[in-house]
Design a protein around this nucleic acid. Sequence first.
DNA 1: TTGTAGGCGTTATCAA
DNA 2: TTGATAACGCCTACAA
Lengths: 320, 320
Amino acid sequence: MTNIKEIAQYAGVSVSTVSRVMNNHPYVSPEKRKSVLQAIDQLNYSRNINAIHLSKGKTNLIGVIIPFTNHPYYGAIVQGITKQANAIGYHIVIFQTQYEREKEIQALNMLQMKQLDGIIVCSRISEMKVLLDYQKYGPIILCEDTAQAELSSISIDHYAAFSSALEYVVAKGYKKIGYSLGRKKSRNSSLRTKAFNDIMNKYHLLNKKEWLFEGSYHIKDGEKLFQDWNSMIDKPEAIIITNDDTAAGFILTANKFGMKVPEDVAILGFNNDSLSEMLDITTVSLPLDWIGKMAVDLFENPKVIRHVKLDYTLMKRKTI
Amino acid sequence: MTNIKEIAQYAGVSVSTVSRVMNNHPYVSPEKRKSVLQAIDQLNYSRNINAIHLSKGKTNLIGVIIPFTNHPYYGAIVQGITKQANAIGYHIVIFQTQYEREKEIQALNMLQMKQLDGIIVCSRISEMKVLLDYQKYGPIILCEDTAQAELSSISIDHYAAFSSALEYVVAKGYKKIGYSLGRKKSRNSSLRTKAFNDIMNKYHLLNKKEWLFEGSYHIKDGEKLFQDWNSMIDKPEAIIITNDDTAAGFILTANKFGMKVPEDVAILGFNNDSLSEMLDITTVSLPLDWIGKMAVDLFENPKVIRHVKLDYTLMKRKTI
DNA sequence: TTGTAGGCGTTATCAA
DNA sequence: TTGATAACGCCTACAA
């Protein structure tokens, strides 16, 4: 593998001159530049970027932590991240955790070892404390509605979004209302739970523990959710499902069982995936690609810790 | 940032000893090991991996070229790649091309500059010639049914898979058959087109140019596909749609327009996404996660160029 | 079992 | 406008 030194020899200049040519620095005479360029061409030279990384102390790589790659929610965020990252000359390293803490730590270690210039955490496993520990090695951006002030974050106001969805359900006259979350213990979920409890209290509605469902991510989970719901003696009449894929799975399964939405049970989803549009699912639209874009923006300006909130929109369709 | 030298000083040993400890080499006395470990702890040391990369000439990073991140087909493949790559100590850098050639070249350049140890191309843009050019810089694995012998590949036998799907449609008694592809010019598409033409000839069936549709990737494309189909005077009675998302979009739109599948038009999809299962779409199941796994296996053994083919399964359900 | 020294390929500083 | 040379931080013969 030919290196800068060989080019220098071949072109009859010093390595510094070659480096200058490679980096488009000024102060290189046209003749020398030309001979360097020729040498590069002749010897089929290309830079070893690891040497540059070492020398510069950065890699132009951002780590992205997500639980699944094959999920529309994270797919959309990653799409947004990738686009903006590319725009500022960065590339993305995907860490698919499947909610294993170890995978997240791997990413953090790579930040520490300078293989990554920063990390965007789309869904967190470790405690805040851990992330804060690693922050000294590079910017860590959180895509979650965090109250912590020490880490920049970008998120939807999940409390408000869920509240307004629930208010809508209540306004429609439903009294027996259930809801379905991803991981119960996640930040988003706890905000949603708080919103649920607050609103239910406000209207003096029954808040049954069994009407909180968990583990909804994928379309197949919706099938299970329907079965759980269907096997209940006392069923909620409306369910807020915090992800459209699961909502779609629920509705399609219900149809198979000869049940109609919203006649037999009303459904309100989240995310506004194209699938929800196809199925006319009433849902809360979240600007996922913008989350991605903003996360990169926050990464770019690590000096100022900011907590950005993005807006949501209730898409009124036909399932409630 | 503390480095190996400082640790050596602090621990009263040489840098080599520190290096040996870091790499779990034998031949380090317990006492020295201990003092090194202490120094590491005291000084809060962590390795700069870029130096290791430079020194070793590799990064344990594999580039993955895909058109979209938010698509179940590629999501599933990436899932498989990620899993297997992690198992052998590699991480994944995603290149989302959206079919822009430039993005693909970026990845190839990173291979050339040694930021990547290899590349897995899930959907190709550049000509084979270009990829072959870059092969000297590291293994390039192609997830496509390629005839070329110079590059390892992993794929489904798309000719056979499409043929068997079409044979099934014919056997069901359909004579007016259309099909829908992603990019007409892709390798997969050309194999499918060849299969279509061959089978249609074999049975002396009408092969109308207008019944070849293009640009089907996402669920929304299915909506458009339905509209295109619906606006035809002479409609095909069955359509093979080479991706379940689009098939689902087609069917759901058809239902909105009061049409029934398969009564008004029969549909056969590809991929066996969970959505197709939910909707009872007859589809060709492709082992996408295995493609990912095998791609990494091929990357691991770059010495032998191999062309692996994986099996498909026709999932007989209710849309034809 | 340990240490010395050279190499990995660039960039950056400083002097010329 | 150029060139030496010292970083950057680690690995690995080779010698001891």
